[in-house]
Simulated assay, not measured.
Amino acid sequence: MKSLTILVVVACLIAVICGYRNPNTLEWADYAYNIDDGNCRGTRLIYEDVIKNADPYTVKKTTYNWDGRSMYHITCVRVHNRMPHDTRAAEARVTKGGVGQSEVKIEMISKNSEGLHFIVEIWGEEKYGSSQNIGLLMGSPDQNDRVLYVGKQKYCMCN
């Protein structure tokens, strides 16, 4: 039993020294006042205000999700804080996807008793070059089935 206790203590010390972090734990070091990631080329797909009003003794937290449904890859993610840059300003982080992916998840959090106000911009390019690569293949005249192709991949069956 004594050796088990020593083993647990040693494991804890190693975790602390090596900087182990639980990925589900909120760490302020992961957040930023603004996010400017990537090269904003292609089409601006999203330009949206995200606002949460302040409530006393409350931290506001919201998540913004965008999914390009595998038709776009993201070239740029901008999350610009509209609050004054001081110790009470809300902050944001990308928690999933982002530049080079077809989706992004952005988490925004306020400080206690403060609101948040961000402008979210997402830029992207079509994965398959241009819209000329979109085609609809119809079944025989007596069938009502249609297949939508994007690039060379089947996107959906329509009827």
Score class of each variant (00 low, 15 high):
residue 49 D to E: 11
residue 119 I to F: 01
residue 41 R to T: 14
residue 9 V to H: 03
residue 83 M to F: 00
residue 118 F to A: 01
residue 10 V to A: 14
residue 50 V to E: 08
residue 93 R to E: 05
residue 87 T to D: 11
residue 11 A to N: 01
residue 108 M to H: 02
residue 121 E to N: 09
residue 113 S to I: 09
residue 14 I to N: 00
residue 23 P to R: 05
residue 106 I to T: 04
residue 96 K to Y: 13
residue 158 C to W: 12
residue 91 E to T: 11
residue 58 T to K: 10
residue 60 K to N: 10
residue 31 Y to A: 02
residue 48 E to V: 12
residue 99 V to Q: 01
residue 135 G to Q: 15
residue 37 D to F: 02
residue 2 K to I: 05
residue 62 T to Q: 07
residue 16 V to L: 14
residue 43 T to N: 05
residue 2 K to S: 06
residue 117 H to C: 04
residue 25 T to Q: 11
residue 69 R to K: 14
residue 135 G to A: 12
residue 138 M to F: 13
residue 19 G to L: 06
residue 97 G to T: 12
residue 139 G to S: 15
residue 72 Y to V: 06
residue 140 S to K: 15
residue 51 I to F: 02
residue 136 L to P: 07
residue 119 I to M: 05
residue 133 N to K: 14
residue 10 V to M: 13
residue 117 H to N: 14
residue 96 K to I: 03
residue 75 T to C: 01
residue 93 R to Y: 04
residue 21 R to T: 07
residue 55 D to E: 13
residue 9 V to K: 09
residue 119 I to L: 06
residue 122 I to C: 01
residue 73 H to E: 08
residue 66 W to M: 01
residue 80 H to D: 09
residue 155 Y to E: 05
residue 62 T to H: 07
residue 6 I to Y: 09
residue 41 R to C: 05
residue 159 N to M: 11
residue 55 D to L: 11
residue 89 A to C: 03
residue 144 N to H: 15
residue 127 K to I: 12
residue 113 S to V: 05
residue 141 P to R: 12
residue 140 S to H: 13
residue 139 G to N: 14
residue 137 L to V: 15
residue 148 L to G: 07
residue 145 D to C: 13
residue 157 M to W: 13
residue 18 C to Y: 08
residue 88 R to G: 04
residue 83 M to I: 01
residue 6 I to V: 09
residue 40 C to H: 00
residue 43 T to S: 10
residue 3 S to K: 08
residue 101 Q to R: 10
residue 148 L to F: 09
residue 18 C to N: 07
residue 23 P to T: 02
residue 78 R to I: 04
residue 86 D to F: 09
residue 97 G to C: 09
residue 82 R to T: 03
residue 87 T to V: 12
residue 87 T to L: 10
residue 53 N to T: 04
residue 133 N to M: 14
residue 36 D to Q: 10
residue 74 I to T: 03
residue 44 R to E: 12
residue 42 G to T: 07
residue 80 H to T: 15
residue 19 G to T: 03
residue 74 I to S: 02
residue 53 N to V: 00
residue 86 D to K: 07
residue 116 L to M: 15
residue 53 N to P: 00
residue 134 I to F: 13
residue 138 M to A: 15
residue 154 K to V: 13
residue 16 V to F: 10
residue 159 N to W: 12
residue 40 C to V: 00
residue 142 D to Y: 12
residue 108 M to N: 03
residue 86 D to N: 15
residue 137 L to D: 11
residue 103 E to C: 06
residue 2 K to N: 02
residue 19 G to H: 03
residue 64 Y to M: 04
residue 32 A to T: 13
residue 105 K to Q: 14
residue 152 K to V: 12
residue 8 V to N: 06
residue 153 Q to V: 14
residue 151 G to P: 11
residue 59 V to C: 04
residue 143 Q to R: 13
residue 35 I to Q: 00
residue 149 Y to M: 15
residue 90 A to C: 01
residue 5 T to G: 08
residue 142 D to V: 12
residue 146 R to C: 12
residue 143 Q to T: 15
residue 48 E to I: 07
residue 115 G to D: 10
residue 47 Y to T: 08
residue 4 L to P: 00
residue 147 V to C: 11
residue 92 A to F: 02
residue 90 A to L: 01
residue 98 G to V: 06
residue 18 C to M: 09
residue 84 P to K: 06
